[in-house]
Design a protein around this nucleic acid. Structure first.
Lengths: 157, 157
DNA sequence: TAGATATATTAGCCAGGGCTAACTTTACAA
DNA sequence: TTGTAAAGTTAGCCCTGGCTAATATATCTA
């Protein structure tokens, strides 16, 4: 990133030189990563809730905890946050449901996840590894990149 | 991940059925992502320190803060953590140096970063976007996947 | 060289997302 | 139906990594 902070003619407010623009762009990139992190929990949870409802008819905290590899109190706390944020609807000690917004997010996440896994496997990566890496990568794949993955998959079907 | 939790004959302790193994593997995946997160700050910082030293001869907190898009006190606090963890060596109000371990980490990170960016660009993604996405993706790319990226790059040079 | 300015640090706050221990509620079985 | 086991929640702790305000140190310039 530093070695050649030259090309890529972008707009930028122009201040002193290319140094400042590069710094801005880099700061922007890090900010995006931090923002993505704030959504990761939500994405993982709604995705998992959708999966469990589809597979077993309901999503129970104990099962979510097992799948996520965390303890049940962590799930409870995070479900409260998701409820606060309008992605989940539920009553104490009762079943977990996704709101409309939660459903939409879950759908998008699951599609993106599938795409990333398929893409990695198309590169020759083993399914298990592809699944694991996708879990971390998927949250940082922009729309542009996701589309590039899809194009690649179409060409290499 | 849910729709077809079947194939991929792995090892696993075998308990009841495929359900348990799948849950284990999934939990493992999430655990890996959480572990990766714990290293992200360290990786970003040492990478940036190496870049700045190479580009300007020294790494100053004020420049790091600008590049990272955070405020200087955040940099100070995180540098203390890196010092505690043996990646950085420095004295108060004085220059920042990487330890041997820090240098090694920085080198590996920079190489991985270059590979990820090149790979994304080889897929037809614009440099700017590739840089941004790489910033988030790179921390979750396993050795296997990194190798697959390199293979792809060799084939598509 | 002294004083203003820039840089760095400290202190103290906040939210996120883990945990354990203790308690409540639900569900199941005798 | 009642009592025990399983599931869920609450309370309270920890560390990370942001922030602002206040303070300390360095640097640069007049």
């Amino acid at each position: 990133m530093s070695e050649n902070a030259s090309d890529s003619p972008d707009l930028a407010p122009s201040d002193t030189a290319s140094d400042d623009r590069t710094a801005d762009a880099q700061a922007d990139g890090f900010a995006r990563v931090r923002a993505a992190h704030e959504n990761e929990m939500a994405e993982d949870y709604v995705e998992l809730i959708a999966e469990l409802i589809e597979a077993t008819g309901e999503a129970r905290p104990v099962d979510m905890a097992e799948r996520l590899g965390v303890k049940p109190p962590t799930v409870t706390k995070n479900l409260s946050r998701l409820t606060r944020d309008g992605l989940v609807k539920r009553e104490r000690y009762r079943s977990i449901f996704l709101t409309e917004e939660g459903e939409n997010l879950a759908r998008a996440c699951r599609e993106r996840h599938r795409t990333v896994v398929s893409f990695l496997m198309a590169l020759g990566i083993e399914e298990e590894v592809a699944q694991r890496d996708a879990e971390g990568i998927e949250h940082h794949v922009s729309g542009d990149t996701l589309r590039a993955f899809e194009v690649f998959l179409q060409k290499n079907s």
